[in-house]
């Protein structure tokens, strides 16, 4: 598309709110305020390489990975059902699926707290069945549950949009040629839905790896993730330099994972985000 004056507001917007702040983060991450004024340093990055911070990084990636896999396993069949042929039911299903997203994300996470508590709904139900109460809240599993619950729509919706665009004739042709349903899925549906899967994975992995609210509320502050670390540096310690360095590392992780993902999405056949 030819550039015209319509695009300038967006360019200015991006400059002010994306490009310049990014430069500032980069600037903070490589400088240090000393008595002699600002000096260039890589100390903050070196500090990040200490085992304790690497451990936090790996935990973040590990939990985000588990969350992404679970979202894919749960979300793909869901997307197939949504994209199915039963039109009457389909609209209601999509509607029901999207409704929770109208509610604030924090509220939904708080709601999980009251469900999982020791005296919460689930444990009340268990004790009513005369079963021993479970320690559900403030565990690693609770954190993963919160992530999966909150980010599942980001997996389902892109896959759904790709699946619903697949030409039905391709599937019919395959069936005519004798392919059973497993082969149809393996050879036709899944490969065609790959762009949706990839954007789904990126859209789930990114917020999962950077979240700090879910781990604080459902993990009870016991499972420090990279997002918590950054928040702590900016809000409590006031060490903007180290916080910026962690943010840069985080961005690098996301860029790398996006780079890896985009290698599998060479064709860019719609549905993909990038």
């Amino acid at each position: 598309m030819k550039k015209n004056w319509m695009s300038y507001p967006y360019i200015v917007w991006m400059l002010i709110f994306i490009f310049i702040p990014l430069l500032l983060v980069l600037f903070y991450s490589v400088t240090m305020r000393t008595d002699q004024g600002l000096i260039f340093t890589l100390d903050h990055y070196q500090r990040f390489l200490e085992p304790i911070y690497l451990k936090v990084l790996f935990r973040s990636i590990y939990l985000a990975f588990i969350c992404t896999v679970l979202c894919l396993v749960l979300g793909y069949p869901m997307a197939m059902i949504l994209a199915g042929n039963d039109f009457k039911r389909k609209n209601i299903m999509v509607f029901l699926f999207v409704i929770p997203m109208w509610m604030n994300f924090l509220l939904r996470t708080y709601a999980w707290m009251t469900l999982l508590e020791r005296r919460g709904l689930i444990n009340t139900f268990l004790s009513w069945l005369r079963l021993a109460p479970l320690n559900l809240l403030y565990t690693q599993e609770a954190v993963v549950l919160g992530m999966v619950y909150n980010f599942l729509p980001f997996m389902v919706l892109p896959i759904y949009s790709v699946l619903s665009k697949i030409d039905q004739q391709l599937i019919e042709a395959a069936e005519d040629l004798g392919a059973d349903s497993v082969t149809v899925f393996r050879k036709i549906i899944f490969p065609l839905s790959l762009p949706g899967v990839i954007s789904g994975i990126t859209m789930v992995f990114m917020p999962a790896v950077t979240t700090f609210v879910i781990s604080r509320l459902l993990g009870g502050g016991q499972f420090t993730l990279i997002g918590n670390l950054i928040e702590q540096q900016f809000l409590y310690v006031g060490d903007w330099n180290f916080g910026s360095a962690i943010s840069m590392v985080m961005m690098l992780v996301i860029l790398l994972s996006m780079g890896v993902m985009s290698r599998y999405d060479k064709e860019h056949e719609g549905g993909g985000l990038w």
Partner: peptide, 15 residues
């Protein structure tokens, strides 16, 4: 010196 308190707290919580 707050930085050292922060480091300790991070090590406790991230352990």
């Amino acid at each position: 010196f707050m930085k050292d308190y922060d480091r300790i707290w991070t090590e406790v919580k991230a352990d």
